[in-house]
């Protein structure tokens, strides 16, 4: 039996989370179809077809699917489900919104934020903000999973051999309608897939100082900007910059934590980074327990020094 991957995309392009979820899917089985639900989404479908290991790309286009609203998208996936024994999606805001709705309609218990495939029916996932790892086996005939993309390497971009097949959208009552997206505009890389992340905490003291200290270092490194919950709560950074249990989970090559003490909820979002640097005036701060390299000192002194020295 085959695997259906509900891809994350914006119609014009495929997000890297989809390639990473494909990496996970191919560990479960070789027959993977990618579903592109959208409107005017040929470009995203072509990008999916170019990934190595894809059997087919299913392209469903309709106005209600343009922003992948939960009700019509879930109805579409349920309509396709009969041909599959695993349905998965990256655990992005779109995957987390749609897949539990699919699971309930199929009377399946979903397995969220899978970080390791143990067997086709057995998975590891973090619980308690990553302070414990649960190994769970599904007894359902069909499995519904969301994949923590930071835990899987992306499938390679292949030579585009997979066929793109059009599928009909499902009939679903229009229970909700899309209004508008208010997206953060930034020239920096996407936080959840950036190779380097520079994050700031409450110690920055104000939005102006956050931007004056964190942004130049991030720009010099070509890095994304992240923030602790405390910094977001204080209004120093936008909500979608939050790294942690209830924000974004990141695993870049390099994570630089500036003035972040390291609450367990924050560590849950970044402790799988390859290299962690901590800069904090409190040498006893818990962030140093997960840091590969730490500097005890004043962030207002050290961070600009780093920026100038690069």
């Amino acid at each position: 039996m085959a695997i259906l991957l509900f891809a994350d995309h914006d119609n014009a392009s495929l997000s890297e989370h989809s390639a990473r979820a494909l990496g996970a899917a191919l560990q479960i089985g070789p027959e993977v179809d990618i579903l592109i639900a959208g409107q005017g989404a040929c470009a995203a479908a072509d990008a999916a077809a170019a990934l190595a290991g894809v059997r087919r790309v299913l392209l469903a286009e309709a106005d209600p699917l343009a922003e992948r609203m939960a009700e019509p998208t879930a109805a579409l996936i349920v309509q396709l489900a009969v041909d599959y024994d695993t349905i998965l999606a990256p655990a992005t805001s779109s995957g987390k919104n749609v897949l539990p709705r699919v699971a309930a309609l199929l009377d399946v218990m979903q397995i969220s934020e899978v970080t390791q495939i143990v067997a086709p029916d057995t998975f590891k996932r973090p619980i308690y903000a990553g302070n414990a790892i649960e190994v769970v086996q599904s007894t359902d005939a069909l499995r519904v999973l969301t994949i923590r993309s930071a835990s899987f390497a992306p499938a390679a971009t292949g030579d585009g051999a997979a066929p793109v097949v059009a599928v009909d959208p499902a009939a679903a009552p229009a229970l909700s309608s899309f209004g508008q997206n208010l997206l953060s505009v930034s020239d920096r890389p996407d936080l959840s897939s950036a190779r380097i992340v520079v994050s700031g905490g409450r110690a920055l003291g104000s939005k102006q100082r956050f931007e004056a200290v964190i942004n130049p270092l991030a720009d010099k490194l070509g890095a994304a900007v992240g923030a602790s919950r405390a910094a977001v709560d204080a209004g120093y950074a936008a909500n979608d910059h939050q790294v942690g249990q209830t924000g974004k989970v990141v695993a870049p090559d390099l994570y630089i934590a500036c003035g972040i003490s390291g609450a367990i909820q924050h560590l849950a979002g970044m402790k799988d980074s390859r290299i962690i640097v901590a800069i904090n005036s409190d040498g006893e701060a818990p962030i140093f327990q997960v840091a590969d390299y730490g500097i005890v000192g004043d962030i207002f002194d050290i961070v600009p020094q780093m920026e100038r020295a690069l």
Binding site: Q180, D190, K248
Partner: peptide, 16 residues
Amino acid sequence: LVTREIDGGLQQIRVT
């Protein structure tokens, strides 16, 4: 009218 937190920012949708 609900404002939702999504990966890249905010999204407004209208639910019945």
